[in-house]
Design a protein around this nucleic acid. Structure first.
Lengths: 176, 176
DNA sequence: CCCAGTAGGTTCGATGACCGAACCTACTCG
DNA sequence: CGAGTAGGTTCGGTCATCGAACCTACTGGG
């Protein structure tokens, strides 16, 4: 969405949020970041997004402080994009959006399941653990493939994401 | 966002959700519906959205089952748009998005405050009540103006929304 | 009866975002 | 020295969005 054109005049926190993460593809980039994707080519392959659009989104998310760009190797210079604290704060939004999509758009076939790793219980609608009755830190969230997921995807990133993993755990699509 | 162009290939509930409510303006229309806005002209005035775009959004939200179109008067024929159960299920998403916008985009100036009416506690990130530790039915959510809100707005709908109100309570911008 | 006003749209040309493909740079490996 | 890879930028075409104008159906006032 992006255009502050009219959004800027809105006296509303939701509209302000949408100016940052409301454009096409933007929220999916953030989602991938939660899944552990960090590198340009991994986003590119996993999302099937045009290169120019990905570059623009990474730039605007970095400008907005949702992602941080970090040099992880000098020669040749290579950068990775990781979630900032501000970006991590988007988890409740993504969680509730995914839950809504699963229950109100498609045929109730879960794509991915998010559980409280220490106890193995699936997260509740509030991102809490129903069994432990506490909020769950991101590091304690384990994502597992659900029945709706293609068991033999094309791209390496999707294949790497088939295994159970913790949120934010860096992804290395080479070792699969 | 809308275009299933590539989103459709995504094995992900979040992407599916974004196909329905990810386009520009769409989520703001839904937000207004939570605030009690029901009529075409009220959406139009409050959002400052082009007429053609509003008509398209109302149509697609109705097709998706998020809103329902209801004839409330026969002569002349007049319709109103109200949230379905599916639409109401978007509340946690809107709540978390608004909270994120308030805390991570602008200068921490709350525009609107949402409280659990029976106990007066402000809602948490998923629309739950932290004090009562339960989900809050939408009818028990009271919205109040926050310090960031323009105290003397132009359009009648904004003016009507200045008073504390319950979510979903039908708005009548004529009596202000 | 005529006219102005209102609700709820549709149509239109211009602008701007998004798309896919091609190209570029810097470096490494064999 | 040539091929390959990561991480981009540039470019022309298409499609969504924009604001403004127009349309229809009805009501209420003089």
């Amino acid at each position: 969405m992006a255009l502050g054109k009219d959004y800027a005049t809105q006296q509303c926190s939701i509209a302000r949020a949408l100016e940052v993460i409301g454009e096409r593809w933007t929220l999916l980039v953030v989602r991938d970041a939660f899944y552990g994707v960090r590198r340009y080519n991994d986003f590119l392959g996993h999302l099937g997004i045009p290169r120019a659009v990905l570059a623009a989104r990474l730039q605007s998310l970095t400008d907005a402080g949702v992602l941080a760009r970090r040099r992880y190797q000098e020669s040749p210079p290579r950068d990775e994009y990781v979630l900032t604290d501000s970006g991590r704060a988007l988890w409740p939004t993504l969680r509730s959006l995914g839950l809504w999509g699963r229950e109100h758009v498609e045929g109730t076939v879960p794509m991915r399941i998010f559980v409280h790793a220490p106890c193995g219980t699936e997260l509740g609608a509030y991102g809490e653990c129903p069994a432990c009755a506490t909020g769950v830190p991101l590091e304690d969230v384990e994502m597992r493939p659900g029945p709706g997921l293609d068991p033999d995807p094309e791209d390496p990133v999707s294949r790497a994401l088939l295994a159970p993993r913790r949120l934010l755990e860096p992804l290395d699509p080479d070792r699969v």
